[in-house]
Amino acid sequence: MKVLVGVKRVVDPNVKVRVKADGSGVETANIKMAINPFCEIAVEQAVRMKEAGIVTEILVVTVGLPQCQETLRTAMAMGADRGILVETDVDVQPLAVAKVMKAIIAKENPQLVIMGKQAVDNDCNQTGQMVAALMGWPQATHISKVEPAGDHAEVTREVDGGLETLTIKLPAVVTADLRLNEPRYVTLPNIMKAKKKPLEVIKPDALGVDVTPRLTTLKVVEPAKRGSGVKLADVAELVNKLKNEAKVI
């Protein structure tokens, strides 16, 4: 079975992001970047399935700047076989990525698409579902388990309050949640090998996909800082504040 994994290059989740002085976005120049953690889990899943003999080839795809090749190399160092970068300097939004993926799926015919459930930069949680919709395929988001069997797969999803199990027909799109697996550390020999694996760079135009953003970001700001605390009179007041002001219970 051939698997396609979509990955995204994001600001390293350990980096505290800063809003640009003009409020037009978040400072990403010269910031440490990394593969989106959920995408890393998606790659890991594909590699494990290959190691288990279920998967024969892993194709990893990303959309974005030339530097996204690094992300593909990381995925290939983890065990993906080849990569495709759809190169653009446009701020690609989930719908555009989904259309790119659709075009690549049409050429590559994977049986399974694995993606991260969301990217930790824009927190959209959309792309996997959109790919499934555009392909007319079933989907399983937030999965913690996937077991392909013939023309279908058994999946376990993390839903509010517990787990849900589904049988989905293949081909399908699944999106990885945290508990699906724990990604491996990339090994040094595999970093070296990844350099030699095929990496194709194509433009969205070549796929006939329009990646123009649909949403315009008008401004970004940092949320208001925590004010200094208040001393409360009694437990009743505390409960009231937690419920109605802080809204945490």
Binding site: E70, R73, A77, K195
Partner: peptide
Amino acid sequence: VTADLVEAVLGE
């Protein structure tokens, strides 16, 4: 050995 490779090795 390329700069990319060094960067990848150091990063990991």
